[in-house]
Computed example of a mutant assay.
Amino acid sequence: MTHPVSTQDERRPDRAALLIGVALGILGALVLLDAQSVRGGAYARIGPATFPTVIGAFLVILSVWTMISAWRGRFPEREPSDTAPVVWIVAGLALQLLLLHPAGFSIATGILFALTARAFGKRKLWISLPAGILFSLAIWLLFTQVLRLALPAGPLEQLFT
């Protein structure tokens, strides 16, 4: 006995996955376009443009695969997302970008650390902020003193130079 196909089993195209597929395709096309402008290594079969070309082609293939799967509705149902953690992390990144040069690496990255910790559920900013600044200062000291790399220095870092 055959059972009629239920419309309940059929899923509509996943618009979010389609959008991700389009974005992957655009990114892949941009990588391929940029790989065309890479010069050098004409004497070798594998030159500086080889890997960007492979990555761009892979992104385009992944894009097509994602869009086909999205159109057929083969992606699993997603849980509802909570936007508050994303807002905390984006705010931390924005503040780090704004404060990196005026406040220095340690303070700006410590703020990013504290707001990211807040996004992951640590509500005590009065603990995570100083901890983040101390961790960031240790990283700044490692990079600038041991590895001799240049990172933005603010008033806190000036105490150590």
Rank of each mutant, 00 (worst) to 15 (best):
L18E: 10
P52N: 05
P155D: 04
L33T: 13
L129A: 15
I20Q: 08
R11V: 08
H101Y: 15
T83K: 11
F105N: 00
F160Q: 04
R12L: 13
I133A: 06
T83Y: 15
G154P: 03
G121E: 12
L97C: 13
D82W: 14
R11S: 03
F113P: 01
G92L: 00
V60Q: 08
L32H: 07
Q36Y: 13
A29Y: 06
L134N: 08
P102M: 05
L129N: 11
R11G: 04
I139N: 03
L100Y: 09
A44K: 01
K124E: 15
T2E: 13
L33R: 12
A16T: 15
G40M: 01
Q96L: 15
G25V: 10
A35K: 01
D14S: 12
I68P: 07
L24H: 00
L112N: 02
P13E: 00
T161S: 12
G110W: 14
R118T: 00
S63R: 05
P85W: 13
R39E: 12
G92D: 01
P76M: 03
I61Y: 11
D34R: 05
L33K: 11
H3V: 14
F160C: 01
I55F: 14
F51H: 09
L156V: 12
V38I: 13
E79I: 12
L125Q: 03
I20N: 06
W71T: 09
G56Q: 03
Y43L: 13
K124C: 14
F51R: 07
F105T: 00
G56I: 04
E77T: 11
